Simulated scan of single mutants.
Amino acid sequence: MGAGMTTIKDVAKAAGTSFKTVSRVINNDDNVTPETRKKVQDAIKALGYRPNTGARMIRSKKSGVIGLIADQAGMSVHSVNLIRGAQEEAWAQGKFLMVINIDDNHQNMDAAIDKLLERRVEGIIYAAMYHHAVNPSDELRAVPLVLANCYDERGELPCVVPDEYAAACDVTRHLINTGHRRIAYLNLNPRIIAGRERSRGFLDTIHQHPAVDGWTEKAISGEIGQEVSRVDEVMSNLLNSDRRPDAILCGKDEIAMSVYFSLVEHSLQPGHDMAVASFDNLEIIAESLKPGLSTMALPHYEMGQWAIRHLLSENLEISHERLSCDFIRRASA
């Protein structure tokens, strides 16, 4: 029987159940036994039945669609996992995720909002490329809204971000616990939250260990989006200094890659002559470098999951959730 001709009553007859039971299965109602659910699902598959989503939306007043506005996040390798986490969690909860990427000048923001509202989305996730404050429009604030990898500068919206401070404390403790006593931290741009929080976590942990000499180096300068790397200059100074470190912590994996190159140029082996650790776990770098780079993995996938769960919980209290980062230990530290 063709999918366009099949009705819910046909499915009920094939499964040996009532059409109300079929409806419960379609709507993911828990009040169905696993055995009956399987019979209905098998009948749906065998008959090629497709529920009338328009009718379901009218009855339930819910579209089954969640919007995700990716503020350049869709362009970032780091944030692909955030979208994947949201997609998989939405799918697991019987929802469809509609993703729209916004360019850096936000010219298509109004069109994106209009498209999502036309489809009567049940809520929207606003995901940013990097951890920073945002100020969503009043039009966006009028629908259930959760922020991911960013937070509301007004403090009025729930959000989920990485715990940058705790991540820095954890990786610094690892370097100390593995015997390193002179640690230089090549920081990110201090104008961004990750730069400030990672530096604070590093220094606070160093201060808890009086026997350890730790300090920060300005490896990145310039305005956000127009940064200039100073890694080669910083590394040359460090390696020719009386205060030569035995471990280097890098603000991100791209900095660590430059550190590897500098060490090799000075006939030093990363992980052997000098430990190197980092942040982000950008696998194309961390796994390709030899030896493999020890780094803190940011919880992008988990942030996507959390945002969907919080949105669908219909409990939109103003929560500023910080998720922990995992240390991925490889041979560099």
Rank of each mutant, 00 (worst) to 15 (best):
G195D: 00
V77Y: 14
M129E: 12
W306T: 01
T6R: 07
A15H: 03
M296D: 03
L249G: 05
A142E: 07
I183V: 05
M303C: 06
L47E: 07
A307I: 03
R182M: 08
M257V: 03
N177P: 01
D280Y: 01
D280N: 06
T36I: 09
C150M: 00
E223R: 10
K62N: 15
L323G: 14
E156G: 11
M5G: 08
E287P: 13
M303I: 00
E118K: 06
V65H: 08
Y151F: 14
G201C: 00
N240I: 02
P158S: 04
V32E: 08
D152M: 05
E197M: 13
D253P: 06
G304D: 08
E153V: 07
M57P: 03
D163C: 07
P144S: 06
G225T: 09
Q208K: 09
A142S: 15
L311E: 08
E321R: 04
E265R: 14
S332T: 04
H174R: 07
G155N: 06
L323T: 14
Y301N: 01
A43E: 02
T205D: 15
I66L: 00
L249S: 06
M75L: 11
Y260I: 02
Q41H: 03
V143F: 09
V276L: 02
I44Q: 01
K115S: 15
G123A: 10
E265W: 09
E35P: 11
I206K: 10
P291A: 04
V264F: 15
N101C: 00
S324E: 15
T21W: 12
F261I: 14
G271H: 09
M98A: 11
